[in-house]
Design a binder for these strands. Structure first.
Lengths: 149, 149
DNA sequence: GTGAATGCAAATTGTTTGCATCGTG
DNA sequence: CACGATGCAAACAATTTGCATTCAC
């Protein structure tokens, strides 16, 4: 967690009249210091392991604040749980997901962004955000025959 | 529900040694005869209203069979429930979703498909499927000021 | 008639909420 | 020291599952 990130977080809390508690800082630190796409439960367990006094409820409540203020990004790969990643100074990107091992790779395509905008224009929609996920087998997993699963 | 669709369904059930029950047929009919993106609960309620004797469990179990055999497509717009649409003789398409009124429009872009494939190739992934959803405000909803919500 | 399918209710999973207590500003 | 934040457990919502009963083949 960089000073910049912490500053941004403090500013958000201040602006919203929310308090800077140790739990909130630790949750934010956890996401900032990871390059994974973390589930709420993973954040909770990781903090517990680090002997941080925290409850699941606080993790969920904090993730909500962070998401609402664009300090983290969240995604749902269709299994009914949110995965979070740090977002500050991050460019918009999309995801390539291995359905075998779960590895997630990020990609960016300006071309796709442009076409998306054209599609929205065509239907007279004001485009606000998008979800673009490619599912497949990663380099490793495509080698292994399916029968090994 | 066309005869062709029913035939395909019967063949799937036969191949899998599953039985052709009235409940299964009614669930399939419900999806085939709608152009909406239906939730399991909507299918259940709609059948109940039509006096079909059915339980939620059977709806869920049947949707699973239909999905596993490509008789329906399903999508998750991030609210934790599956939405189903009939899929037979359907071309692959993606969705444009109004976050205000929930209207869902379908779109196809061959250009995007191509770029997706390039992206997957670049990372050495074998591309199997994708999710591409554009969220925004539809023609009607973009007119109404946010404060009216 | 037999094994698979159904309905029901209870279980599961990820998340949210009510409430008494705690602690930041 | 007030009011927002926390932890806990109970509540939720969508879906799944166990089991006794029913029914298609």
């Amino acid at each position: 967690m960089t000073d910049l990130e912490l500053e941004k977080f403090k500013r958000v809390l201040n602006d919203e009249n929310l308090k800077l508690t140790p739990q909130r800082v630790e949750v934010f630190r956890e996401v900032c210091n990871s390059d994974e796409h973390l589930e709420a439960e993973e954040i909770y367990l990781s903090l517990k392991q680090r002997k941080v006094n925290i409850s699941r409820a606080t993790v969920y409540r904090t993730m909500d604040i962070l998401y609402q203020h664009d300090l983290v990004q969240r995604m749902d790969i269709g299994d009914g749980k949110w995965r979070y990643e740090h977002w500050l100074d991050c460019h918009q990107h999309d995801h390539l997901i291995c359905i075998r091992c779960g590895t997630i790779v990020e990609f960016v395509s300006h071309q796709i962004e442009e076409i998306q905008q054209d599609v929205a224009d065509k239907f007279n929609y004001k485009l606000l955000r998008h979800v673009h996920q490619l599912f497949g087998l990663c380099k490793q997993c495509r080698k292994t025959p399916m029968s090994v699963i």
